[in-house]
Design a protein around this nucleic acid. Sequence first.
DNA 1: CGGACTTTTGAAGTAATTCAAGGGGAGTGG
DNA 2: CCACTCCCCTTGAATTACTTCAAAAGTCCG
Lengths: 232, 232
Amino acid sequence: MDDRLDVEMLERTELFRGVPPDVLRDIHTASFRRRVNAGEALFLQEDAATSIYVVIAGRLRATQTTLDGQQVIIRYLGPGEVAGYAALSGDDSHPGAVTAIDDSLVVGWSASAIRDVMSRHSVVAINAAALIGARYRDMQVRLRELSTEKVDRRIAHTLLRLMQQAGRRTARGVEIAFPLSRQDLAEMSGTTLHTVSRTLSAWEERGIVDSGRRRVIVAKPQLLTTIAEEQE
Amino acid sequence: MDDRLDVEMLERTELFRGVPPDVLRDIHTASFRRRVNAGEALFLQEDAATSIYVVIAGRLRATQTTLDGQQVIIRYLGPGEVAGYAALSGDDSHPGAVTAIDDSLVVGWSASAIRDVMSRHSVVAINAAALIGARYRDMQVRLRELSTEKVDRRIAHTLLRLMQQAGRRTARGVEIAFPLSRQDLAEMSGTTLHTVSRTLSAWEERGIVDSGRRRVIVAKPQLLTTIAEEQE
DNA sequence: CGGACTTTTGAAGTAATTCAAGGGGAGTGG
DNA sequence: CCACTCCCCTTGAATTACTTCAAAAGTCCG
């Protein structure tokens, strides 16, 4: 609708940061908009990577699912972030699925269009490398946590990461700004919802968190950090 | 020494694939060579990401270490591959260490030099995005395995990956082409050397593998695949 | 107010770690 | 060439952290 608004928005995304406005307008011309309702998939695992998207509004999450249906949450995506990086890095299919958890609006480009943009404007390609690099780094850290830490530390780390990414200060502490079930936390921490539930209950008693149905508030971030960091 | 040789070599690396020869010569001019002996570190975790390297010969490995000294092996690097991607993606420090496991030869560039190359030649930036993307994808898979699979399947997957990456056909089966201890396998599979030892012993009895001191030969890759894939 | 999710908590079970000890191979130095 | 030493590997036994199984209690929404 309001194209100027979209161009201004693009300017602030991780992929198009530092791109001159006139170029940005060209880039915007080649884009298409897409609305994704909560619960709807932007694309599925193994889908052909025909497009790449930038989130304008809303929230989505990237997951990987095993043959027998077990899921792992790779990450949550908010405004300004890229979904479907496979089209950026030249892979032909998406390694995971991306699903909206709130009603969302995304801007997309065909793989060939974005590849064209990248080769004509190296800033974009450099941004792409930077953004995938940041995710790769995150994954390395998570892999190390998963390999070496016990569950409660892993859950603590998961919560701390979520706080950083989507924390909202409230009177009772820092609230994770989107619905987050025990199951979700389990799929991010490599455990079961039961263990998450027990762990949160224990923390609740110590006043560290304040949680309910699909809702988590971290009341004492400091203590959570202590748990995340403690030796053995 | 023989510069022509190096340029030809660069042509075949993941980072400089598709770059015109004359540009490649320029790129080569800005590079420096470095020899790394087995056991020596190319760089350490948290080191400033001042340089980026391309492996010419030898083998190295990338690790992440926790405060209390536990290690995770991120990946092994062979000829043509990039070490120290942080300088590519604009991070200021290396998230992990890279150490030579055989005497190795690498070619390096300063972070500013490679950034200059990337902005002047978008192919290189695009290659960088592709290469980091491939690693990110690998990590997603490993994360999922670590979260959802039991140890023996994880060890099987690790071996299969190593076979693909560094397998050498021999009379007795496919041999992993570099020294690989139980501890190494444990650090790649998220378990302990004891569990790896027990698991390999069991497989040895079934004739699936043939292993010894820092040496693994997969005699029956098919059976290993079955184990890696089996439900539950 | 019904019904579908989500969460909680106990109890049983188990996979894998930890602890512990010993064995074997490869290289080194006498 | 043999003995010594350092790694690396193996294997049993004990322990435990976590999962699985099971049931019940909340909580939200239409």
